[in-house]
Amino acid sequence: MKRPPLTLKGAERLRDELEKLKTVDRPRIIEAIAEARAHGDLKENAEYHAAREQQGFVEGRIQEMEATLSYAEVIDVAKLGAGTRIVFGATVDLEDEDSGDKVTYQIVGDIEADIKQRLIAVSSPIARALIGKSQGDAFEFQAPNGLKRYEIMAVRYD
């Protein structure tokens, strides 16, 4: 089975979140459970049940992140040396050929994809259309709202 790719920056973000969960969130929840327990009857203690639910979520997230970090193949994109050819980890500046709008995306592993941060999954239709192309190329792909055409303005690995 192939190990999922993860950028070095993505791995660092996961490690930072994991550290916060272990050193800040977990102790805060344990304290909240202890405080709620002190209020007596646990059957009708909403604070206790909310804290236990939150504890379950945090512990599950910690396990998920530890497994991801131990299993993923961490790739330092700065060392790939792909030049202007687009491969995993590339940050690309695109211009929509129809509207003239400019957008920047980084191609990352599925685990770390976050469209709000302009991190697109390597398995997404736009990333699959970009892989192997170079700066100056034009390409098109089928987006949910129809066919999109872009020109690749710049490619970098940082």
Rank of each mutant, 00 (worst) to 15 (best):
M1E: 11
M1G: 13
K2R: 12
R3M: 10
R3G: 00
P5C: 06
P5Q: 07
L6F: 06
L6A: 06
T7Q: 04
K9R: 14
K9Q: 13
G10L: 05
G10C: 07
R13C: 00
D16N: 13
E17V: 12
L21Q: 02
K22N: 11
T23D: 07
T23Q: 09
I33A: 06
R37L: 13
G40P: 00
D41L: 09
L42M: 14
F57L: 12
R61P: 01
Q63T: 07
M65C: 05
M65D: 02
E66H: 08
S70V: 00
A72F: 07
A72Y: 09
E73T: 05
D76N: 14
D76Y: 04
V77L: 07
L80G: 04
G81Y: 01
G81C: 09
T84K: 14
I86M: 08
L94N: 03
S99V: 03
I107Q: 03
V108M: 07
I111N: 01
E112D: 04
D114M: 03
Q117M: 10
R118D: 10
L119I: 02
V122R: 08
S123G: 12
K133D: 02
S134K: 14
D137Y: 05
A138F: 03
A138E: 14
F139E: 04
F139N: 01
F139G: 04
F141T: 02
F141G: 03
Q142C: 02
N145Y: 05
L147I: 10
K148F: 11
R149S: 13
Y150P: 01
I152E: 00
M153G: 02
Y157T: 11
D158I: 04
